[in-house]
Design a protein around this nucleic acid. Structure first.
Length: 420
RNA sequence: GGAGACGUCGCAUAGUUCGGCCUAGUGCACCACCCUGCUAAGGUGGAGUCCCCUUAUAGGGGACCGAGGGUUCAAAUCCCUCCGUCUCCGCCA
């Protein structure tokens, strides 16, 4: 949720933000009107309630003879208060509904436009090509007996898979390397719940634009999370936290996504699947430190990709491709030789105070007041990296060279050899 | 899954019997000041969160006793639903 006072005082900047996102601009005026109605309703209710309160104390102190008359008067006041209270409730839910359609204020540096309109921030490495018939990750992984797609489908349906043998170990190696990296950077590691309550899913914004991608368990009214960001954001919900030093968490969890609406896309292999593992970074900081923290998360992600010896580029995602909570998002995309293109391996978002405001995560300012913290999140390691690692480091015989930094996590293994 | 007990302003508790002197008391911890010659005690005062109004960051008002409904002129208190905690029993890949 954006800052209501920002909406009142600088509606122009909110309109501009909506515009570069390609979202409704009119919703800003609707929100202003709804906000005014809400405050008017509250004023009316509180005026009536104050009168009722004053009268109620008279009733309590009145003698038996006086009481019936006073109660008769109070009855009228009660009716009015009830009506006014109902009006407040309606006005508030109307405002909520409108506010939920306004995305976070887009950072001024973010390019306008959609998916194709990102700004390229940097590239690293060469867009690797091979002088032999290169294999894609499925062919490589199956040769290594690292992946069993057929049985994944047999057991659970399309977009499910088994990681087996070295595949399973390689995923764990990536995750553990990520864990060591975040630990060195002061993050507190957490294994997070992957089923959360509706309020948490709602509060983190995933029941908005992502609603169709979320698994829901109706018998228990719980949602399976598509990232531990959900649990990590909920971690400090309704708390006043101390962020003199940033609070940094790294959540390790399996992630579940329905991938509704992506039928037919990335159907081969494990690029787009319903279930995968991820180590996710999540920081709570003072709002004025958010940008520096965003750079920090991105830097850590680059170190990780460099450790995996991948070719990649860093992009500043365009406004229209931002999630509603994000003010700015950097994606790091690795070169995938079989596709001749870059694919997203990490993403880091600066949600400024947008997410924290709805979740009620606040800190104590210098003046002693409370104010929403800023939250940021970013990928530290995830299953998808297997795709780029296998393809980038493949050799003519179908073996795969292990990047040096990963070797300690694989018992010193230098090359993954095909299994007959 | 069954039975029972319980959720009060940071922590601990009083208040719930018989609805209205609850504007929610007390202790601890906390903050400021005073006193005090000292790893302490004592005194005074303050202090929660959210929101509205006016506005000088001073004040006025409203809401909040796990959450949400209901009864009532009036709910921490009575009723219902939900959430959570604890105890016992059952079950448990």
């Amino acid at each position: 949720m954006i800052d209501p006072s920002l909406l009142r005082e600088q509606p122009e900047s909110v309109r501009h933000s909506q515009q570069v996102r390609g979202d409704s601009v009119d919703v800003v005026d609707e929100a202003l009107a709804a906000d005014a109605s809400r405050r008017a309703a509250i004023g009316e209710f509180e005026r009536l309630r104050a009168a009722q309160n004053a009268h109620a104390s008279l009733v309590g102190k009145a003698s038996k003879e006086e009481r019936p008359a006073l109660i008769a008067q109070a009855k009228q006041a009660s009716e009015q208060v009830k009506a006014a209270q109902a009006a407040v409730g309606e006005a508030e839910s109307a405002l909520d509904a409108v506010m939920s359609r306004i995305g976070n204020l887009v950072h001024p540096s973010v390019p306008a436009g959609g998916e194709q309109d990102f700004a390229l921030l940097s590239t690293h490495g060469t867009e690797r090509t091979f002088d032999f018939a290169a294999r894609d990750h499925v062919e490589l992984a199956e040769g290594l007996k690292a992946l069993d797609l057929q049985r994944g489908v047999k057991v659970s349906g399309s977009r499910f898979y088994f990681l087996s043998g070295i595949g399973m170990r390689l995923e764990l190696a990536i995750m553990l390397m990520g864990l060591d990296e975040v630990l060195a950077d002061g993050f507190t590691p957490l294994v997070t719940p992957t089923l959360v309550r509706p309020e948490v899913m709602q509060g983190t914004g995933f029941l908005g634009e992502h609603a169709a991608e979320v698994y829901h368990l109706p018998a228990d009214d719980l949602f399976l999370t598509g990232t531990s960001e959900v649990a990590l954001a909920g971690f400090h919900a309704d708390e006043i936290v101390d962020v003199e030093q940033p609070l940094r968490y790294a959540g390790w969890s399996t992630c579940y996504r329905r991938e509704a609406g992506s039928a037919g896309r990335d159907t081969r292999g494990i690029l787009r699947v319903h279930q995968f593992n991820k180590l996710e970074m999540f920081s709570y900081v003072k709002p004025d430190q958010a940008e520096a923290e965003h750079d920090r998360l991105r830097a850590l992600q680059e170190r990780m990709l460099q450790a995996c010896e991948l070719d990649y580029r860093v992009i500043d995602v365009a406004a229209g491709d931002l999630g509603s909570s994000a003010s700015r998002k950097f994606d790091i995309e690795a070169w995938v030789p079989s596709q001749g293109t870059y694919r997203e391996l990490t993403s880091t978002s600066n949600c400024t105070t947008f997410q924290a405001r709805r979740l009620g995560t606040r800190y104590r300012t210098e003046t002693g007041r409370t104010a929403p913290v800023a939250t940021l999140n970013g990928t530290a390691a995830t299953t998808r990296w297997l795709v780029a690692i296998l393809e980038t480091h493949q050799q003519p015989d179908g073996s795969v060279r292990v990047p040096e930094r990963l070797r300690p996590y694989l018992g010193g293994l230098e090359v993954l050899e095909p299994v007959a």
